[in-house]
């Protein structure tokens, strides 16, 4: 995203809209810090600029990956799901993707509101690959890595220092590996330059509280629940 300095009148009204604090004041005009901008499109969609000084420039590879991971209206060329999302457990009553003896893992790098470099994605995928994780095929993050090692694929190395609003690693592991995986993740968390939100998905909806208690994970009062409507 860019701001046309000729059109900008320096009102600075666009600055608070940027989730990544990429719009800054510079010589009495608003300016986009290209390193911080994730091409999410929020500033443009907000129509906050009365002079229409904000505009989307043509995104070339590898910068285009920022929009793939950050612009909610972008649909990945290999993953025809709107909303930048995957189906994970949302359609499990149809797909049967998650089994009773498994746990679904979602690691949302950069959320909430911090952003992440692809470099940190690799640290997490390498951890998960050690447990034989089955990475979600319909997830753009999976397309970045060699799923057997979790390392960035050679052709994706060029994206390593691209910055995105969030990158969500999704996979399935055996329930029996959850504790060891959590221990490793906590160690890796000390070595990343961002934050991540952790999602745990259970098909076994009877015993999850006990499992979380054993892991010293607080059970939040709210959750996302597939209510089995497709089976009704």
């Amino acid at each position: 995203m860019l701001i046309d300095r000729e059109k900008c009148i320096g009102c600075m009204k666009c600055i608070p809209f940027c989730p990544m604090e990429a719009i800054v004041a510079e010589n009495k005009k608003a300016s986009v810090n290209s390193d911080r901008c994730t091409e999410c499109g929020v500033c443009l969609r907000a129509k906050v600029c009365v002079k229409e000084a904000i505009f989307q420039d043509k995104l070339e590879w590898p910068r285009a990956i920022r929009a793939q991971f950050s612009n909610v209206l972008f649909v990945h060329k290999d993953i025809p799901i709107e909303g930048r999302g995957t189906e994970e457990m949302k359609t499990n009553d149809v797909t049967g993707r998650f089994k009773e003896d498994e746990v679904g893992i979602g690691i949302e790098l950069g959320r909430p509101g911090v952003g992440a470099h692809i470099d940190d994605v690799e640290k997490i995928t390498m951890d998960l690959a050690k447990f034989g994780a089955r990475f979600a095929e319909d997830n753009p993050t999976t397309h970045l890595v060699d799923v057997s090692t979790g390392k960035l694929a050679d052709e994706m190395e060029i994206t390593r220092w691209e910055f995105v609003t969030s990158a969500i690693v999704e996979c399935i592991i055996k329930k029996e590996d959850l504790k060891d995986m959590m221990d490793l993740l906590k160690e890796t968390a000390k070595d990343i330059d961002t934050v991540f939100s952790l999602d745990l998905i259970f098909k076994d909806t009877k015993n999850y509280k006990e499992i979380l208690n054993d892991l010293n994970i607080e059970v939040r009062p709210n959750a996302k629940i597939n209510v089995g409507m497709a089976m009704a």
Partner: peptide, 10 residues
């Protein structure tokens, strides 16, 4: 059918 839980920030 399935439950997705938030397990915190790291």
């Amino acid at each position: 059918n399935t439950i997705n839980l938030s397990a915190g920030y790291f």
